[in-house]
């Protein structure tokens, strides 16, 4: 509870800055309009106008909040939660690709890490490729993946999930290789004195040792998955998903819509990472590793 006050202070500061920036950036348009109409505006009128423009350069926080409510909660109240104008609908489209991609990426990441730790050839060969894969801009490779998969008849959810997996497997590989290697020489020697098999060493020592590493990389991987899913929606002219909302917003200069989609994505990411954090706390507590 002690942390509430500092957090609120920071939030207030950000909101205040945001309002200030909105006035600064949107002022010119207001003044231009007034000049064209031959009006003289007082300072209060200018400030008031910068808060309510249809297509502001930077929407004010309350505009974004109102748009968010209009496209989520309000639609639920009207019973149209899954209409095409609802952010819940678009959010779900993106979320489903994110979760599928996250599952694929995490699974592949863990398997690769197990291979790297247990097999010298994989250790030498896989890691450089994994690193190289992340140096390619995802925006460049995303359309390729979609085109290639489309040509073999796969479209919709799967290509987006694969792009999302492409981004999320990497932090899991890196984290899990470190985690599976975290037991020290002495602990490995101890199991050796029991003549433990490789799988016993894995299940009794390496896997439990890697848990703290796993959850840390899952958090990074989850955020990367969401980015991947959204990026996967951008280059295809998708009509559904948060990425599509961002794209449509930018086509039509609907800055309020862009910002509300951005916030929806941020809220989604925060909730997903929060859920992993919760699972982490419960798991580590049950393992007796949380103090």
């Amino acid at each position: 509870m002690r942390s509430v006050l500092p957090i609120l202070t920071v939030v207030m500061a950000i909101v205040a800055l945001w309002y200030g920036a909105a006035v600064m950036l949107n002022r010119q348009w207001t003044l231009d309009q007034a000049a064209r109409a031959g009006q003289e505006l007082t300072l209060t009128q200018v400030v008031a106008d910068t808060m309510v423009q249809d297509r502001p350069k930077l929407p004010a926080p309350h505009q974004v909040g109102a748009e968010l409510w209009k496209t989520t909660g309000d639609m639920v109240l009207q019973g149209r939660a899954f209409s095409k104008r609802s952010l819940i609908y678009h959010g779900w489209i993106t979320l489903s690709a994110t979760l599928l991609g996250f599952a694929i990426g995490t699974g592949a990441g863990i398997l690769l890490a197990i291979g790297i730790v247990h097999n010298r050839a994989m250790d030498m060969s896989v890691m450089p490729w994994a690193i190289a894969s992340q140096t390619i801009p995802i925006l460049a490779i995303a359309p390729m993946i979609i085109v290639v998969l489309n040509s073999v008849g796969i479209s919709g959810l799967i290509p987006k999930a694969i792009i999302s997996a492409y981004l999320s497997f990497f932090p899991v590989v890196v984290g899990m290789v470190a985690g599976l290697r975290s037991p020290d020489r002495m602990q490995l020697d101890l199991l050796k004195t029991y003549s433990a098999s490789r799988s016993q060493v894995f299940w009794k020592l390496r896997w439990p040792s890697s848990m703290p590493y796993l959850f840390t990389s899952l958090k990074v991987g989850m955020a990367a998955s969401l980015v991947g899913a959204i990026v996967g929606e951008l280059p295809t002219g998708a009509v559904r998903g948060l990425g599509a909302r961002l794209l449509a917003g930018s086509y039509y200069g609907q800055t309020v819509q862009i910002w509300s989609a951005l916030f929806a994505a941020a809220i989604l990411a925060a909730s997903l990472v929060g859920i992993i954090g919760l699972i982490q706390r419960v798991t580590l507590k049950r393992m007796g590793m949380a103090r």
Binding site: M186, Q187, D189, L190, L205, P208, M211, M287, G288, M289
Partner: peptide
């Protein structure tokens, strides 16, 4: 061993 090396979990 020199250290107890008990598993914390």
């Amino acid at each position: 061993f020199q250290a107890a090396g008990l598993y914390p979990w």
